[in-house]
Every structure is written in structure tokens, then in C-alpha cells.
Design a protein around this nucleic acid. Sequence first.
DNA 1: GCGGTGTGCGTACAGTGTCAACATCGATCC
DNA 2: GGATCGATGTTGACACTGTACGCACACCGC
Lengths: 194, 194
Amino acid sequence: MSTSIQEDRPYHRGDLRASLLAAALDQLEEGGAADLSLRAVARACGVSAMAPYRHFKDKDALLDAVAGHGFAELARVLEQADASAEAAEALAAQGAAYVAFACRHPALFRLMFTAPCRPKDTGREGSPAYAILQRRAASLASEAMPAEDLTLAAWSLVHGLAALILDRRIPLAPAESDALARRITLGFARLTRP
Amino acid sequence: MSTSIQEDRPYHRGDLRASLLAAALDQLEEGGAADLSLRAVARACGVSAMAPYRHFKDKDALLDAVAGHGFAELARVLEQADASAEAAEALAAQGAAYVAFACRHPALFRLMFTAPCRPKDTGREGSPAYAILQRRAASLASEAMPAEDLTLAAWSLVHGLAALILDRRIPLAPAESDALARRITLGFARLTRP
DNA sequence: GCGGTGTGCGTACAGTGTCAACATCGATCC
DNA sequence: GGATCGATGTTGACACTGTACGCACACCGC
């Protein structure tokens, strides 16, 4: 009884780092990145405001870790979508999956591409997701659009579409976004082969 | 000497609302939207922390107004770029201008598409910028890409490209981004006509 | 038993957005 | 002229945030 710690809460918990990440993801899903406070995350884990600092240098470091998790998930989703043997079809499926991921995890998606510091493996170089896209896009290259430009264009296309839908610049019912993403990506892929 | 107001500062200034907007834009240019504090804006105008509330309901309302200014500017820039008689060329010029605008005002651009509440005239419906783009894109429509999809695709393309460049997912020297944007938009426009 | 080391806690501080009450101005009516 | 009134700014306070510092606890090999 010498301290104010409640009895039912052990001083050391099993894996606070993982709990913090999970809690941060939760808070992100409901409320957006702006409303995510480090203290609230700590509270959700039943832990003091300073505890997270043992596992993350910063609030930004936590967010970075969350973003990293998001990128891994995105790569997984894209890989899974890249199933068809036909290149245009596969590219369309990837595009739809990209947008669907953004729509399912809007705050996470925004955080990923806005994270204060950027891990090395989330951009053009060294990103698994980019490699998956590149593989498909390269096979559709032509004189008008060399392989590298085509990959960038495809990425920009789906990324922009996702961003515009999330920010409600293209107002859609949730169900519509999938169809739109698929249609536009497929249309784009078809344009590359006359 | 009954108050603590300095003598050289009048109680009522001319147009505080405009000053606040300008100061907010300034703070945005250097430091990003996350570091923009209402109090700092007020300080920059030589005014108390509560003064802005006479002119804007909220911090968000101020940011919205700044974003609105950005959209007007963007529309102006696009209109100006839409000069060439040739449709593909004009579309490429618009795309390059869009990306250039984003690169010149990164924080403003991010704010515009992330603003907490969205004014009516910044999306697909009723936006002057969208209308300008639409006019050009429609003339490039084909069977594979009907006019509406094509406009959306073109917008997504340049928007995504801008976002990826800003967030340094496509690492570029500042000078390169212009050329890349032009090349990719032009390539896209050319794809639409075999 | 014993010190060391990794974890979590309490306190404290500066900074934020915003509410409520008050002060000051310029225009307007007597 | 002077009183009045609405618009505009001010001060003070509150709850909240991120984070620096130093202490408390719990487990490790010895």
C-alpha cells in the first residue's frame, strides 16, 4: 500500500509496445490522426502518460511505426490482388485493391503518406508495394509511355483517386468507389494497348 | 495608463480578418499545417489570442478560409495554363501547372485537400478548377474511356503525382518535378488517341 | 542476498484551443 | 455637445496536449 498503483494492474505488462501500437491503430480508425493523442493511447493501455516513451522516442515515432504496419498490410493486399494472368486485368485488380484499402482504413492511409518522418521502404525505392506494381506495369509499356513513367502514372492514378475519394472531393457511396476504381484503372490499362 | 495595452498599437486595426488570413498563409508556408497555431497567428498580427474568434468561429474556420483562397489561386493557375489550342498539349500544361502549384505551396496544397470541413466549390461539383479540366478532358474521350471517367482519371493522375512528390515518395530535385509532371500528363493524353 | 538494468510512475512545465466576462472604440440618435 | 449601442479586442481561466526529469518497481545473473 505504499504506492497509488491499483492492485489489479501489474506494474510490468507483457508487451506494452504491441499494445500501444494496437491502441493507436484503434484510435486512428475512429477519430482520425489529428485527434490521436499519445496520452489517450496510454490511457487505453491502462498506463501512465510517460510509459510510451520507453518504447518510442516520440509521438512521431509511434505514428511512424503505425504507418509502417500500414505499408506492410498494403503490400500484402496488393500482392494478393495481383492474381490474374492477364496484365491489364491484374493491374486493374491492384488499383481497385489500393483504393479499397484506403477506403477501409482512411485515417491510416492518410497517416501513411503524411507521416512526419519517412521510413526507407515506403516510396519508389525499396518498397515491396512499388515492386509489385512495377512488375505489372512494365509489361504494358509502349513508345508513348516507357516502363518507368507508366509505373509512376499508374501509382499516381490510384493514389490520387484514393486521396480524392477519402477527402470527399469525389463524393461517392462506399459501394461505388470499388467499381469506379476498377473501371478507371482498367480503362487506363486498356489505353496502353491500342 | 489604466491598461496594459502598448501605446503604439491601436485598439481597432483596419482589417484584422485579412491580416489573419495572410499571417496564417505565412505560417503555413514555413512550418506546415501541423505547426500552425491560432495563437501564433494572432501574435503575428499583434493581437490577443481571442481576437481571431471575432472573425472566425474556429481554428478550423480560419483554415477553411485559407484553403478557399488556395482553391481560387489554383483555378487561376489552371486557367492560365490552359492556353494551347491542341487538346493534349493543353491538358499536359494543366497537369504540369497543377503539380507546380503543389510544389510551390506544399503546405497549402495539403491543407486544401485535408481541410476539416469542405466548402462546396472545391470538388467535382461546382469547382471552377474541375470545370476547366473537364472542358479539355472531354475532348479526348473515347470508347475505352468515356468523358467523365477520363476527367476523373486525369485529375487523379495529377493529384496523385503531386501528393506523392510532396510526401517524397517520389524523391526528386525540385527542377525535375516539372518535367516529370509534363511528361506523364502528356503521355497520358497521347494514350487517349491512338 | 545483491546490485544492475529495463520498465513504468508522478510531477512539472510550456504551449494549445476555447469559454466567459470585461474594455474600448466609432457611429448614431437626442 | 453628450448618451447609447454594437462591433471589435482584452484578460483570465480551464482542460488538454507533448515531453523533460527523477524516482519506484521487478526481474536478471551472481
